[in-house]
Nucleic acid binder design. Structure first.
Lengths: 217, 217
DNA sequence: ATTCAAAAGGAAACACTGTTTCCGTAATGC
DNA sequence: GCATTACGGAAACAGTGTTTCCTTTTGAAT
């Protein structure tokens, strides 16, 4: 899928060629730019996403990107939203489960896999990879949408009496924050290896489920 | 054009004056530079710490900083270690408590306060504020030293039979990761306000203590 | 004490970055 | 068809980390 050349120069003959970026000031061009930015990000990491590099791969000047996105944060915001979609898809792909605690376990596993398979997206969304970018109201809304699956499970469990705490948002945040903490410490290099990190994550998830689910669902 | 006090220009008459930075290639000069870097960081945030700005406030060229620290990561590493000392001090200032679960609560509160009072340090240490900087072995060792208080409490609790889990490092990481997750989501702008964040943090800490301490200590 | 090699430090340059300005060209409204 | 407007490319601007160049200073051997 991706070429594997190690340096950051864009080789135009192996990757998909994109339209020469002119004339249309429409959404298609915008999506192309986001696609290019995402491909650079996933191949070389978030810090490799520069306006000039995106423009080079788009074979256009930087001005067009500024016209369409305002500034780099505007592009970062789109990558954030793109990541939310991918996360939502990852959650949607988890087969439903009648036992809500087991369902939450599977969802938690999907969240871990997302963080490992789409690390760049994860770092942009929740890791502050673009340090100047702070989530907007729209970004926060997209996060909620992405986590909708978790919210649904928690709400169901509350309604069915398996969780005592009555505030679903609080419970979701409690789960999310703890899982994020494990992932982020690992990605930040504070956990020595993936095995230790995964064990830490699994144990965190397990503890959370046992804390909130006070009987088998 | 605009030389107002709103920008990041250094006003030399209000802050401490530092030695003119010459002659000695010793540790004192190194400490002065770290002190200057730390003062800029705490006043304007980690992203304001640039080699040029530090050099300007030191009234020296950038070369001296490169001679002493190698590169910016070398300076970041020192700020990391400085932060570890401050965190260790914050933990040391917590009055000891015979009841280990209550002691851990107080330690947890000190960790929260540290993250709010020394947010720049926290972001450098655990938030990836200097995205290019990854903790070295020495940094990881310093982290362990800073968290020694927590390790001690957990180990004591295990030895006294209040905690079933026998691996103190695992328990410390479980506590640390979850608390860090709350703090980091808040600092990243994903929790709407400080009240919600603090409630989230307190509840996380409370849950952790109840999870691991299976009887009153 | 003098001399000479080695180290240190300042100014400027280099290679990047995000962003803006300038200006010609293209599209658009009448 | 023409005037106006918006768009987009090249280059400039301001800032970053880092290196190079060259002078100055240091430190040690004679």
């Amino acid at each position: 899928m991706h070429n594997s050349s190690k340096n950051l120069s864009i080789d135009t003959h192996t990757t998909t060629t994109y339209p020469k970026a002119k004339l249309q000031h429409n959404e298609i061009l915008k999506l192309s730019i986001i696609e290019v930015a995402a491909s650079i990000m996933q191949e070389y990491g978030p810090e490799a996403v520069t306006i000039r590099r995106v423009a080079e791969k788009m074979e256009c000047s930087t001005k067009i990107i500024y016209n369409l996105f305002g500034n780099k944060d505007g592009l970062a915001k789109q990558l954030f939203l793109e990541g939310c979609k991918l996360l939502a898809d990852a959650f949607q792909a988890v087969p439903e489960q009648t036992k809500l605690d087991l369902f939450l376990w599977d969802i938690g596993q999907a969240y871990w896999k997302f963080s490992q398979n789409y690390t760049s997206y994860y770092m942009v969304m929740f890791g502050g990879a673009f340090s100047e970018f702070k989530p907007t109201e729209e970004s926060l809304q997209a996060t909620i949408t992405a986590l909708q699956q978790v919210i649904t499970i928690i709400t169901k469990a509350i309604n069915q009496g398996f969780i005592t705490e009555q505030d679903p948002v609080l419970v979701v945040n409690l789960v999310w924050a703890s899982l994020h903490g494990s992932i982020h410490l690992y990605l930040g290099g504070h956990i020595p290896n993936e095995e230790a990190a995964k064990a830490l994550y699994d144990r965190t998830l397990s503890n959370l489920i046992h804390t909130f689910f006070h009987s088998n669902s």
